[in-house]
Design a protein around this nucleic acid. Structure first.
Lengths: 246, 246
DNA sequence: AGCTCATGTGAACGACCTTTACATGAGCCG
DNA sequence: CGGCTCATGTAAAGGTCGTTCACATGAGCT
C-alpha cells in the first residue's frame, strides 16, 4: 500500500506515484533470487509495471540503483548489529558474541542486501552516503571492540580496539561469504557456520587473554570430556566441547 | 609462441591453432581489468582475433569459460600454498604463517584468478573438476592444520584440525576479500592486510594454547613496551608489538 | 586425390542498457 | 476555473551481448 500517496487505488494512470520505492523493492527481490549479477534494470521496471526507460528518472543508471540498495543495506545492518550489541548488556562478552551471530544472521536472512553490499562489485567509495553508511555499521563493531578491549584482564596487554574490530569483521565476513550463503553454503561442513564463527571468536578472544570459560586452557587442568579428532572427518558430531556452544 | 602448433608464423588463416588457450588468457586479462562481472565473451573473442561465435567451439557458454578459469586458479592456488607450506619446514608454526601470507599474496597478485574463484558467482559445485581442484587447495590448509594440531602443548586439549583449517581459511578469505583487493582495498586501515592477518592468526593460535613468543600472555609477565591505544586512530604506527612482525 | 570432421564465419534473434524526442497530468498561480 | 510548467512516464532507436544455426575452410588421414 504505498501507491498514489493517499488513495489505496490499485489502478494507476500515467504516473506511478511511488516508482523509486517500487523499483528498490523489485530490485531487492530480484537480487535475492538471482544475485546482483543476474539482476536486470529492465526486469525491475517490468515488475513495477513501467517502461524500461522510466527508472532513469530516478536513478542515473543501474549501478546507482545497486549502490542505493547497498546503502540501505548498511543502514539496516547497522540497526541489527546495534540491537544485538545492546550497549554491552548483560555483559560485554555475551553481547559481543551476539554481534557475531547477528552478523551471520543478517547475511543469511538478507541475502539481497548482503549481496549488494559486499558481492555486487559496487565499490564502497562509489558514493559518499554509501561510504558513510558502511562506516557507521563498522563503528558498531568497533565500539564493541573498544569496550571489550578495555576489559582485558590485568597483567595482559591491551590490544588496539581498531585491530580487534577488523579481526572480528574479517572472521565474520569470511565465514559468511564462504560458508553461509547461497551456493557457497554447498561446501560441506562438520559444523554450522554459526558454531564455526562462535568457536573462532572465542578462541581468538582467549588468545587475547580473556578468560573464556569452556576450556580452561590456562592451568594444567587436564583435557575434560575429550574431543580429540572428533571433527577430523566430515560427519557432524553431536556436540563436543568445540561443537554446540550451549 | 603457442600458435600454429609448430611454425612461429604470426599470420593465421582460417584456423587459429590455439584458440582455447588464447581465450583463457584473454579472459584472464579482461577479468583482471574489469572484474568477472564486466568481462564479456565477445571481448575475449575479439581480443583473440576471432568471431564472436568461435568461442562456442571450445566452451559451452560464458559460464564454462569462467569456471575453467576458476579451476585453473585453484590449481595454481594449491601450488602456491603447497610451496609456502613446504611440508612444515623449518618448523610448523613458521610454515603455517607462510601459508597465510601466500594466501594473501595470491589474492593480491592474481586478482583475476581470485575473482573467478571466489567472487564471480560460479558455484563451487558447478563442475566436478572445479570442486575437486577447490578441495585439493583446501587440503593444503587442512594438512597444515593437522600437523599444527598435533603439536598442541601437553595439558591443552587438541583442537579438531578440520575446524582449525576452516577458521584459518575464513580469516584469510575475510581479510583478502575486505581489505586486500581492488576497490575493497580503498578502506583505510591502520595496518597492512598482511600484518592484520598475521596478528589475527597469531592471536588465534595463542587462543588454542600455542606458546606464541611475542607477547607472553601466559604468566604475569607485565606488559612490555606497551602499545595501549596506539592503533585506535587511523594513523599508521611505526611498529609496535601488534604491528610489524619482524 | 579425396573425404571428413574439427574449427571458424556471418547473419540473425532476443534481451539488455541507455539516450532522445515526445506525451501526460499534478500542482500551482492567477 | 483555466492555463502553465515541470516532474514523471512512454516509444523508438542505437549499441552491445549471449547464443544458435547454416555454411565455409582446411588439417590430417586413407
Amino acid at each position: 500500500m504505498s501507491w498514489r500517496k493517499e488513495h489505496g487505488r490499485a489502478e494507476r494512470g500515467y504516473h506511478h506515484g511511488n516508482l523509486k520505492e517500487a523499483l528498490l523493492q523489485a530490485a531487492l527481490g530480484l537480487i535475492a533470487e538471482k544475485g546482483a549479477a543476474g539482476f536486470t534494470f529492465a526486469d525491475a521496471a517490468r515488475m513495477a509495471g513501467v517502461s524500461a526507460a522510466a527508472p532513469y528518472r530516478h536513478f542515473r543508471d543501474r549501478d546507482e540503483l545497486l549502490s542505493s540498495i547497498a546503502q540501505r543495506g548498511f543502514e539496516q545492518f547497522e540497526a541489527r548489529l546495534s540491537a544485538a550489541w545492546d550497549d554491552g548488556r548483560p555483559d560485554t562478552v555475551t553481547a559481543f558474541e551476539r554481534v557475531g551471530k547477528a552478523y551471520l544472521a543478517f547475511a543469511r536472512e538478507e541475502p539481497a542486501f548482503y549481496n549488494a553490499m559486499f558481492e555486487s562489485g559496487v565499490p564502497v567509495d562509489a558514493n559518499a552516503a554509501l561510504q558513510a553508511a558502511s562506516e557507521r555499521a563498522f563503528n558498531i563493531i568497533r565500539g564493541a571492540a573498544e569496550r571489550l578491549a578495555a576489559l582485558t584482564p590485568p597483567g595482559t596487554p591491551r590490544p588496539p580496539a581498531m585491530m580487534m574490530a577488523l579481526h572480528i569483521w574479517s572472521m565474520s565476513h569470511g565465514v559468511a561469504s564462504l560458508f553461509s550463503r547461497g551456493d557457497a553454503a554447498r561446501r560441506k561442513l562438520p559444523m554450522s557456520p554459526d558454531e564455526l564463527l562462535e568457536a573462532e571468536v572465542l578462541i581468538y578472544l582467549r588468545g587475547l587473554g580473556f578468560p573464556i570459560d569452556r576450556r580452561p586452557a590456562t592451568k594444567g587442568a587436564e583435557p575434560p570430556p575429550v574431543p580429540p579428532e572428533a571433527l577430523s572427518g566430515s560427519g557432524v558430531p553431536p556436540g563436543g566441547p568445540w561443537g554446540k556452544p550451549k
